[in-house]
Design a protein around this nucleic acid. Structure first.
Lengths: 246, 246
DNA sequence: TCATCATACTGGTCTGACCACGATCAGACC
DNA sequence: GGTCTGATCGTGGTCAGACCAGTATGATGA
């Protein structure tokens, strides 16, 4: 029974995947190129079409390729947003990881704000300013306020003009939306949070405008620390105080 | 004609993928669990087995699940090595992404070193010290030196005791190894790199020992900046100079 | 009690078919 | 001649049923 073999050691899926990987890494398959049809690929490699589809689907979730219904399979420009899927799965395992994820968010944003100081352009400034204004307008609304808060922070990362940081931030943000919302609930508990929210964000904005990375980083970092402090006090039911540890 | 079912709008692959994603994100499917067989899954969701296999394969390349031949499909603890696949593809066509990823690495490590100052224990200190010693021993070797360098930086992240930061850092590691290796080649070009490598890492280590987050962050950040400067000078063919912009 | 073997699983794969729709080109119409 | 229309072909999307090769398990025999 000379089943298949001989052609190469890999079996089925691996064969197809390796075949495509080779072309993709070598550059003979570039973004925009259309692959040959699944049927051709199947006969070419001596496997069945379902196997070919497994390989194509694998490349799809890796963001390497896009399967277009009734059109064909085309090579896409690698998009970092694939990481989103992975991180969602990877980080959603434990709920107690929220604090930990927050640390990663701080890491990303503090680096982003530094880069933003160097790279931000007029459009970035305007976006930040709009987000800042929005925070002021929605200071008393929980949902809208939370979104405005997040938009500002996202604007910082966007202003860094780093795709990697942007994607990582977006991935982590999904897990932290609750954090943002609960933060806004502090507004009711602690009136001083209002000035904290406005002043902090404004100071960060000003530091970026001044293109002062050190100050921007420090201010943003302090902003996070104070937010933590507020949440901590909310947990223990402390009364309002303006100061908070840094 | 009850073609597709009205139970859900998604079709085929999406249906299965969404079904499994739900369980995985909700936590009803935890690492170590064995999924029901492909056949059961197929009948349960009203799709064919090849479709189920597409979904399982997708989860496999995402590192969420492992298909064991003739055993079954089990949920794995998310493994970052998947991201290496992605980055390998991405970089094959997009070499300029390296700088961008480097920014993410700086972000992660600088935050990690701050946390390490707070959380590092004796074991972490010892690991850092061993890594530091290794850097000194392998200062003249390209490969071993690069590994020692990377090990030190990884030890910092490990000392942060942040799973998320560790995961992110490890995921970027695939790319960073190249960066690390090429960095070591600078040792030949610039003798002063030796002292730079030793002194910088030692200073970082000392800052962590002193549990001084600000100094640790600043030192590490400067370390990266000087490394960049060396690489820049290597590109333009500059001669050796000890000082570098910070 | 223990070793052996039949059986019922599992994943891995193939075959051949159908559907719905986009693309294409020939033919009809203006 | 040029444009519009429609049939055909190709594409992905899916299905059903089958076979293989091992694993795991339980029944059977020693």
């Amino acid at each position: 029974m000379e089943l298949k073999r001989a052609t190469d050691g890999e079996k089925g899926f691996e064969k197809v995947f390796a075949f495509l990987r080779e072309r993709l890494l070598a550059g003979s398959l570039k973004p925009g190129d259309r692959l040959i049809s699944e049927r051709e690929l199947a006969t070419l490699l001596g496997v069945s079409r379902p196997i070919v589809r497994e390989a194509l689907r694998a490349l799809t979730v890796l963001g390497i390729v896009e399967i277009r219904d009734r059109i064909g399979t085309v090579v896409t420009r690698p998009d970092v947003s694939v990481l989103n899927d992975f991180f969602t799965f990877a980080l959603a395992q434990h709920a107690d990881m929220l604090d930990d994820v927050m640390q990663a968010r701080v890491a990303i944003e503090c680096q982003a704000v530094r880069l933003a100081c160097e790279r931000a352009n007029i459009a970035d400034f305007e976006r930040l300013q709009r987000a800042l204004a929005k925070i002021g307008e929605t200071i008393d609304e929980a949902d809208a306020g939370g979104m405005a808060d997040f938009d500002f922070h996202r604007a910082i990362v966007v202003a860094s003009h780093s795709e990697t940081l942007t994607v990582l931030h977006a991935s982590l943000a999904g897990l932290l939306t609750h954090s943002h919302r609960s933060r806004r609930e502090l507004v009711q508990a602690f009136p001083s949070v209002k000035t904290y929210l406005m002043d902090d964000h404004r100071r960060i904005f000003e530091a970026v405008i001044a293109r002062d990375p050190e100050r921007a980083d420090a201010t943003l970092r302090k902003h996070f620390a104070i937010g933590d402090e507020y949440r901590r006090r909310a947990v223990v039911g402390d009364i309002d105080k303006t100061s908070a540890s840094g």
